[in-house]
Design a protein around this nucleic acid. Structure first.
Lengths: 241, 241
DNA sequence: GCCCCGGAAGGAACTGAGTGCAGTCACGTC
DNA sequence: GACGTGACTGCACTCAGTTCCTTCCGGGGC
């Protein structure tokens, strides 16, 4: 398949794109991102320099080979939302798609995390990726909040909060080298955001019609008290502050 | 001051850095950011190419000449916070420092906005700047929230929400070509965030020591109910859902 | 068999950002 | 006047990313 001087063929074997990612990561981990040139990568992968840029528009893109697909998935997921679903809950579910992508390949995700943490250029690139996720969420919410007072403001703030909560949990998982329970952490973090921004629950959990007395807590508050104040009192009443 | 072949001196006149910014923006607006090379800029400013990179580590930096200072101001502002100030309110005030910087030079800010909106590279750079502001806020909040349950989560989410609200108002102002009242819009947006997240009002409104009966609402809930559930009940009890 | 076509790959040459280095000029000080 | 020091310049270099052209290959149609 590769007679003498002809360039290596790869019929069936790692289809170029995967080969480039593999070669790139091997070199990035061995000697660092900035110390690795595109020429090094294509030499190791045994392909022409031009091919690299056919598959990845920039050197940074090879570090995030799956985000483009994930972003498309998220956009499709939001576009396919039933009209009656609670919007905040929906964007939380959309965020979980990103977590799923990371969790599909934990060791790869952890390696990449360590890389992006050290290389400012990669951090900047990651920010622009995250920003696109956030804008997708915000666009959906803006649409759903259209008409409400401060609709776009609420949409932007909720989208930012969801992304921040998701990333907080995701990063804790990555720092644990992928051993913690990422799903539970993200659920908890997103639950916090949902509780902060009104509506949006996973289909109200069935509760006993009449709770036992010792399970009950009574909170008395002024009707015009700001909501946050009431929540604060609640937290301490429930012993969760 | 510039006899024959000697390089131009600029004693007293625009101190290099300002000259570079002016030349850069003139060209960026005339023919676009990507169509302008660093060589073009230094030629117009009448200085050597090497000097450009002494004042700006990259071509992008010349577009945001004041953010480094503003970031330092914000860090100092947060570091100088009295211990008894409400943290969420404090980060909102810190965010207002950024608005002030933009408002100091409206036409420049509007031009830059139009530039960054069109040029993906500049958008990415701006994101990394915004990210540093957000991390400064989050670091302060993490410190203040240390010990509380979910302290870092709350810190990250609140910081993200504050930045999102600020940017929502800021962008509306920039789109209005700087004619709207930026301060009022930002106050409103930040007020929304403060109302959503626990404490943080501009000095708690004086409340009667003993509320009248019709101002009181009683909520009964199960002790082990998830907080969001309680909040939901609260909202409907208060007629705010 | 032959030719043609289209898509995937390669390769050479170019542009432009950013860096390293050496050299110059204007100053201050002793 | 010698001597450092700091601001500035010019030059040469690396490397990312682009442009353009060529080659190779498989699959028809005849």
């Amino acid at each position: 398949m590769n007679p003498s001087s002809a360039p290596p063929r790869r019929d069936g074997r790692p289809p170029m794109r995967e080969a480039l990612v593999a070669a790139a990561f091997r070199l990035f981990l061995e000697r660092g991102y900035e110390e690795t040139t595109v020429d090094d990568i294509v030499a190791l992968a045994g392909v022409g320099r031009r091919s690299f840029f056919r598959y990845f528009p920039s050197k940074e893109d090879v570090v995030f080979p799956d985000h483009e697909r994930c972003l498309a998935d998220m956009t499709a997921f939001l576009a396919a939302s039933p009209a009656d679903v609670e919007p905040v809950r929906r964007v939380c579910d959309a965020a979980r798609l990103v977590l799923r992508m990371y969790a599909e390949n934990p060791s790869f995700s952890v390696q990449r995390y360590r890389l992006t943490k050290r290389v400012p250029g990669l951090r900047a690139y990651e920010l622009s990726v995250v920003w696109r996720y956030e804008r997708a969420l915000a666009a959906y919410l803006r649409d759903r909040f259209a008409g409400r007072p401060d609709g776009t403001l609420r949409a932007d703030v909720v989208a930012a909060a969801v992304v921040a909560a998701h990333n907080n949990a995701l990063r804790a998982w990555l720092r644990s080298d992928g051993v913690d329970d990422a799903g539970a952490a993200v659920d908890h973090a997103l639950g916090y955001v949902q509780s902060a921004f009104g509506a949006g629950l996973p289909a109200p959990p069935p509760a006993p019609a009449v709770p036992d007395a010792e399970d009950v807590v009574v909170v008395v508050t002024r009707r015009d008290a700001p909501l946050w104040r009431v929540v604060q009192e609640l937290e301490s009443a429930l012993g969760r502050a």
